[in-house]
């Protein structure tokens, strides 16, 4: 079937197999590879993107399901000249990434959290990240980065 999705503000249109997962569609057809696949069971959150502004795990959404919708990925947070937004910047400043594999999903989850709750406590951040796994950082600096991004926005 034909699927039209607005990805990071740009309209895309592709013929897809019915069973195509959104994450594969974004990576292979749209050509945006920041979004990663880590688990296949909707557990790890590496594939987190924003669907009409809400965070979803794109490994458990079919491309066909989001026909006509808006998707934002990590690439969509980045400015024209490669400039980082507040969350991306805080992740660098606080060393909230090591291998970087969970990072795109983690940044999108953090972005979603801060839109819903601009002033989260540490506990609220930790609960909000329960669906995003990181093996490298022990989450310490990720929590610090999100606190910092929230503070910077105030």
């Amino acid at each position: 079937m034909n699927v039209t999705i607005t990805v990071n503000g740009e309209k895309t249109s592709h013929e897809v197999e019915d069973r195509t997962l959104l994450v594969h569609h974004l990576r292979d057809a749209v050509g945006l590879t920041a979004t990663n696949i880590g688990c296949d069971t909707s557990t790890c959150g590496s594939c987190t993107v924003l669907l009409n502004g809400e965070s979803v795990k794109s490994c458990t959404v079919l491309a066909a399901q989001v026909d006509g919708d808006e998707i934002q990925t990590l690439e969509g947070l980045t400015g024209e000249d490669g400039e980082m937004d507040a969350v991306q910047n805080a992740f660098q400043q606080k060393h909230a990434l090591q291998c970087g594999f969970c990072t795109p999903g983690m940044v999108m989850a953090a972005t979603s959290l801060l839109r819903e709750n601009p002033d989260p406590t540490e506990d609220e951040i930790r609960m909000a990240l329960k669906g995003n796994l990181c093996r490298c950082t022990g989450y310490h600096n990720i929590v610090q980065a999100i606190l910092t991004a929230a503070e910077d926005a105030r």
């Binding site: 590879t33 920041a34 980045t78 980082m84 991306q88 660098q92 400043q93 060393h95 990434l97 970087g100």
Partner: peptide, 21 residues
């Protein structure tokens, strides 16, 4: 010193094996 690796990883994502084109 903050990591020089990070801007790439945070803006376009890294190039892991499955990302190779």
């Amino acid at each position: 010193v903050v990591r020089t690796e990070d801007p790439r990883l945070l803006t376009t994502g890294a190039t892991y094996l499955e990302d190779l084109r």
